[in-house]
């Protein structure tokens, strides 16, 4: 499967934020999306997720030489600040989610099995989500995004505000999840990108550009990326 973006353009009044996004993401890989502040990473994610309309271009999925439009359920979007319905308990939210996706979830597990899988303790499962910690909310958000098994998983600045243990758990989880889907992670943190991602893609000048690792070691690769990003700031 391929997740393809063709000549996507998005401007705000006169300012063209996304000039010509043209890229094909392949399944089974985690992509690290790097870009400077204001480069348009969030705008790009919002376009892909259907939150804002783009001016022109095409987004589609290619499966076995067949192309089709992207449907809302193809995309999972995990925001940097986790958002969960505060008035429900963890269990209620999960039940609601499973109810809605009754027909589409293949081999559903029980609610407690899902909690187990995410490492959410028994005593927390029946608490209101408004009382969850940041890390736990993040896990819940991740969990529902995983259950529906979207073809494309977008993560905006993940892991940045998680404690080291949870962050490590999440990283492992993402690695386990990449089989059969495209995962795109936007981040500021170079080390995270290098550690977690299979490919680095730069968003600069409103375009996406792959950075080849070639034969470089990590340090040289970093320098190459920074040089490329720095160029973006000079115009």
């Amino acid at each position: 499967m391929k997740f393809c973006i063709e000549h996507l353009i998005k401007s705000y009044e006169k300012k063209q934020v996304l000039k010509d996004i043209d890229y094909a993401f392949e399944d089974g890989k985690i992509y690290g999306l790097l870009g400077r502040n204001g480069a348009g990473k969030t705008t790009l994610f919002n376009c892909l997720n259907g939150d804002i309309r783009y001016d022109s271009g095409k987004i589609y999925l290619e499966e076995e030489q067949q192309t089709r439009n992207v449907l809302p359920e193809d995309i999972g979007y995990v925001l940097s600040t986790p958002t969960v319905p505060e008035f429900m308990t963890g269990r209620e939210f999960l039940k609601f989610f499973l109810d809605i996706h009754e027909d589409s979830i293949v081999e559903p597990k029980t609610i407690d099995e899902y909690f187990e899988y995410m490492g959410i303790e028994t005593e927390d499962r029946d608490r209101l989500l408004k009382n969850y910690s940041h890390g736990m909310k993040n896990k819940m958000q991740m969990l529902v995004n995983i259950i529906s098994k979207p073809n494309v998983l977008l993560l905006d600045e993940p892991l940045t505000s998680l404690d080291v243990v949870v962050a490590e758990e999440m990283k492992q989880l993402l690695r386990n999840l990449k089989e059969g889907r495209v995962i795109i992670v936007s981040t500021h943190i170079m080390d995270l990108a290098l550690d977690l991602c299979d490919e680095i893609v730069l968003l600069s000048h409103g375009e996406l550009e792959r950075v080849d690792k070639e034969e470089l070691d990590n340090r040289e690769f970093k320098e190459k990326i920074i040089a490329a990003l720095r160029e973006d700031g000079n115009d």
Binding site: N49, P72, G76, T83, F87, F97, N145
Partner: peptide, 18 residues
């Protein structure tokens, strides 16, 4: 604030029929 703010970030919630 207590409901749609969070659920609207989930794609399934935005399906027209829902």
């Amino acid at each position: 604030v207590n409901c749609d703010h969070s659920l609207l970030t989930y794609p399934f919630y935005k399906q027209p029929k829902f």
